[in-house]
Design a binder for these strands. Structure first.
Lengths: 195, 195
DNA sequence: GTCTATAGCGGGATAGAC
DNA sequence: GTCTATCCCGCTATAGAC
């Protein structure tokens, strides 16, 4: 795969990000060298710097892209309706979006510590937008009288943790289909906030 | 705090582990140098190697100690009884044990990637013992007819993720007391697996 | 048990040729 | 756009003095 010379800018950029994502998810940002990323792509280390000014920017780019895609996908999915239906849609959306993105989820959570303060604040702001989307649904359900929680904010965090936890055990090709996983989690989510 | 000479072995050992735990939780194992740990303790880097053969062993020691303490504490807490009572005790225990150990929880989860294969297997085995303790309670509740889950194994993982998620937002001195947090989570746990 | 000093290595990032 | 070569730095771990 290694090339000696030549220009391949249109494909190298995405390959750099893909390699960085996979390696950082596997070993952690601080444990992965730019040389390793370059070797995985099949270029020399100097070539990476055509695509990122430094390692920090590369990490931040991966995390911001993930959050942007998450929020855009949810914005396209959320619609009006009663709170129960919206919560079911959120549950299904969260599972379908995150299940095929184990590396992105892992990196976006585990590497927050390695962001500069400014970059950290930017990612946290995007994360809060997503949390607020769920919290709005829960509050609407309380108003409708279909949900009852001892604390809505804690319930929001708890549900996201519950759902995202599936990335700890899910492996593609396992005994459960995506539809089964959705059904299992929806049963728990629905009951946990039931009035 | 820095000392020039002298012997302080009885207190330096715990201080090394405490500094390593705090710094690794804050920045990640790969991002923390032995020099930083030594500086935090107030010794020179060479002195650390009186307490650990290498960095990997230091990390493993932190994680194994945490898991050993967790399993010992739960073994002392679990008693016979009906499944509902046992689940409530588990929920309360999990919260009370983990809330004051944010660094340990963080490290034990985030640094699994940085363990050697043998060390990883050892920690995973201990983690499975804890998961199985909860799963036993859920199965007992199914047999009693008080719990109903679409999938008991997934429910086990989901409940642990739900509960452990509190470490993502809890800060000492916040608006909620430990008793309130226990009540909030117990309400969700109880309902989520209710028959 | 701790110190100082250092070996040996690998890291991020850059310069200039092609 | 990529390569090769390199600068400069910090890392883990060890050796030997006190």
């Amino acid at each position: 795969m290694a090339r000696k010379q030549g220009s391949h800018s249109d494909i190298t950029g995405p390959r750099v990000r893909a390699a960085a994502l996979r390696l950082i998810a596997a070993h952690g940002c601080a444990a992965v060298s730019m040389r390793q990323i370059a070797a995985d792509v099949g270029v020399q280390v100097g070539a990476l710097y055509n695509y990122t000014p430094d390692k920090q920017s590369l990490l931040f780019d991966l995390m911001r892209t993930h959050m942007d895609e998450l929020l855009a996908a949810w914005a396209a999915q959320d619609t009006a309706g009663n709170a129960m239906d919206r919560l079911e849609r959120f549950t299904q959306f969260h599972i379908r979006f995150h299940l095929p993105r184990t590396d992105q989820v892992f990196v976006s959570y585990m590497e927050l510590r390695n962001l500069t303060p400014d970059n950290f604040a930017a990612i946290e702001a995007l994360r809060h937008v997503y949390e607020d989307a769920l919290q709005d649904i829960l509050r609407a359900g309380e108003a409708e009288g279909v949900f009852a929680m001892a604390d809505t904010r804690v319930a929001t965090m708890a549900l996201i943790a519950l759902l995202t936890g599936m990335n700890n055990w899910y492996r593609a090709g396992g005994r459960l289909s995506i539809a089964q996983i959705e059904a299992i989690y929806w049963d728990m989510v629905r009951k946990s906030v039931a009035a």
